[in-house]
């Protein structure tokens, strides 16, 4: 089973410690929400875990291999990564953008093997993008674009996915549609680690929650256990009421 494991992972920028001895494991079949206020070190943790950022200590392995020594191609076949910033430089068609998800298999837009073309077609059909598959990306709304990026990640057919705030700045309907896509990916046997700021959304979708504060992981466990009114007060400084999986935030403390 492919897993992403960090052990005492530490990230520094100069003297500032961004991530302090983080231990995290992601396996297929679970949807993990990574929660914490701005600046808690979530993005640094993800990037260092993937080997995209230099670590100051600890280890990060993907399928047992050190991510710092994996080639970008090897890594991209094991784990898909949706970064926070997703600027598109040129107005490519939706189909061509999704085709870039096959880059690690040697494909390029317009030069797809049969397997690559099938993966792209499947992603388009499965995630309901057929209506605008041939449209240029600069004609899409932010919500449609977010779904295209997700489909691009899923077209890689990796066992794992890391997504950094995939629903930021989306309207409620598109937030649900994007999270439905992630859930669909997990239902098919994938494992997803998703940074979220919307706690109610996280409570609805995540099977496990990892809480970060000041560079440390302060809690990691099933949503039902780790999502408490006291934790929200500690981590986010908000007063909240929790009933089952529904979260109502009443105000700042």
């Amino acid at each position: 089973m492919v897993d992403l494991v960090t052990s005492d992972l530490t990230v520094k920028a100069g003297d500032a410690v961004l991530v302090q001895a983080a231990n995290l494991r992601l396996v297929p079949g679970e949807l993990v929400a990574l929660l914490g206020p701005n600046g808690a070190g979530k993005t640094s943790l993800l990037r260092a875990a993937l080997g995209l950022e230099k670590r100051a200590g600890g280890t990060a392995t993907l399928d047992g291999m050190d991510t710092a020594h994996l080639s970008p191609m090897q890594r991209a076949r094991l784990i898909a990564y949706l970064p926070q910033q997703r600027p598109l430089a040129w107005p490519n068609t939706v189909r061509d953008v999704i085709a870039l998800g096959r880059y690690a298999y040697g494909a390029a837009p317009g030069r797809l093997s049969a397997a690559d073309a099938t993966a792209v077609d499947v992603a388009i059909a499965q995630y309901d993008l057929a209506d605008f598959a041939e449209r240029e990306t600069d004609t899409l709304s932010g919500g449609e674009l977010a779904r295209v990026h997700c489909a691009r990640a899923f077209a890689s057919e990796t066992p794992l996915l890391v997504a950094d705030e995939p629903v930021a700045a989306l309207d409620p309907r598109h937030q649900f549609r994007v999270m439905d896509m992630v859930r669909q990916f997990v239902a098919k046997g994938g494992g997803a680690l998703v940074v979220l700021h919307d706690i109610a959304l996280a409570a609805r979708y995540a099977s496990r929650m990892v809480w970060m504060q000041n560079g440390r992981i302060i809690a990691d466990g099933p949503s039902a256990e780790t999502l408490t009114e006291q934790r929200l007060a500690e981590v986010y400084g908000v007063r909240a009421r929790i009933t089952g999986t529904s979260v109502e935030i009443e105000g700042a403390l």
Binding site: L52, A80, L88, A104
Partner: peptide
Amino acid sequence: TLGEEAASGVGL
């Protein structure tokens, strides 16, 4: 085209 971060992510 995807930006540098995502390009690394797809294997560049």
